[in-house]
Simulated scan of single mutants.
Amino acid sequence: MRTQVGIIGAGPAGLLLSHLLHLRGISSVVLERRSRAHVEQRVRAGVLEQGTVDTLVAAGVGERLLREGLPHSGIELRYGGAAHRIAFEKLVPDRRITVYGQQEVVKDLIAARLAAGGDLRFEVPDVAVHGLAAEPYATFGGERLDCEVIAGCDGFHGVSRPAVPEGVLTVFARDYPFAWLGVLARVPPSAEELIYARNERGFALHSMRSPELSRFYLQVPPDADAGDWPDGRVWAELKARLETVPGFTLATGEIVEKGVTPMRSFVAEPMQYGRLYLAGDAAHIVPPTGAKGLNLAVADVRVLTEALAAFFATGSARLLDGYSAACLPRVWRAQHFSWWMTSLLHTFDDDDAYARRLQLSHLDYVTSSEAAAATLAENYVGMPC
């Protein structure tokens, strides 16, 4: 087989890239080791920046997003027995966020690609990439896919990044001394906007996926097992960390999913080698506190699409050669913001009284200074495209 772009991974990055390339008349084949049901059902991020929404709508895959997504114009920081709203409509009036699950974005993209006759291959065994320096191709299940470019969109544990020769990439990484226990519950949200709660017991986040589904996160030890958190314990801990302001009561209900997510920061530079271009989690990971993972993947794909369109239209590799340099400033801005939000809101086992007072002082500054709040708001809704 032959195509112009071989795409490894059918997550949001790979699917969106395939669709955007299709709109430019560029052929692609998407190879995914998991089943279609698996990639459509796995619950991941749910906060879309304004730029991500605009990209999906412009690509013709935003109809359901605009109909079912939940636009938000602020978030709440909760600590010290008080609630503090960061008002996006005042601080960044031209931008907001939309709550819409990553799995819903994936469903929309798969439907659009299949409707357009896209070549999506699920449950593909033994995917490997070769010839990256000059003549790339992929092998899978005894077959070979020749292409001019390979896009590695297969996540942190995929095969694309490890295929780069040793010594080419510089890796920057940090592991955090805690994880998140994520919970999806069949219960209406108890608040209209996301609540980020700093508590001496640990961080908690109240989010949502729809008017009927709520999403919660609890800071837990890094080796925590979801099986050690029965429903009663989950609700008791969420109440202890969230019911800290007068008049707020957390609604409880059926928990339909639990999982533990490690907290790490990771960047591999450069995001390319030869004719391999890494996008999304294959190139970088952020802790989920800042809600940047999916949005960074979309930003990478926007840049890569323009570079590939120029390459196939004119033969010029100038934009492709500059792909990594074009992406990394946004990647590192998101890295810093995600680290900052994580440091601001979580408890650390080695914190002393001095460090905790510094943390609270910084929270007081963010919630009392319009300039500081505007910095949080600008980063949270996403820097302009």
Rank of each mutant, 00 (worst) to 15 (best):
D281E: 15
Q41C: 09
M271V: 03
V301L: 13
P211T: 15
T244Y: 02
I150M: 04
I285S: 04
T347K: 10
S27W: 00
T170M: 14
S35I: 01
V29P: 04
I26S: 05
D349H: 12
E166W: 05
R44P: 06
M1Q: 00
F156Q: 13
P165N: 09
V301Y: 13
E143D: 13
L358C: 12
Y196F: 09
Q219E: 15
L376H: 07
R121Q: 14
E306I: 02
L308I: 02
S207V: 05
H206P: 01
S18G: 14
A59I: 03
V171P: 00
T314A: 04
V256I: 15
G227L: 03
H38Q: 15
M383Q: 13
A240R: 14
D349R: 15
H38T: 10
G182V: 09
V5S: 04
Y354D: 01
D349E: 14
V171L: 15
S343M: 13
A197P: 00
V149Q: 01
E200H: 03
R64N: 06
V331K: 12
G51L: 06
D231F: 02
L278M: 14
P384S: 10
Y354T: 13
Y217F: 13
G9Y: 01
P221W: 06
V164D: 12
D352M: 10
P71E: 06
V106Q: 04
H22N: 08
M208N: 04
Q335D: 08
G182Q: 14
S368M: 11
T342V: 05
M1N: 00
A313E: 11
D154W: 06
T261H: 15
L344C: 02
E166I: 15
V57D: 09
A115W: 02
S210Y: 06
A291S: 11
I110E: 03
V53F: 04
G14P: 01
P188H: 02
E306G: 05
D54G: 05
P125Y: 04
V187P: 07
Y137S: 02
G293F: 07
L114E: 15
R209S: 13
R95H: 11
H72L: 02
A59V: 05
Q4S: 06
D231M: 07
T249M: 04
V381R: 00
D225E: 12
A374M: 13
R33G: 03
E306W: 00
H157P: 01
A151G: 02
V99Y: 12
G274N: 01
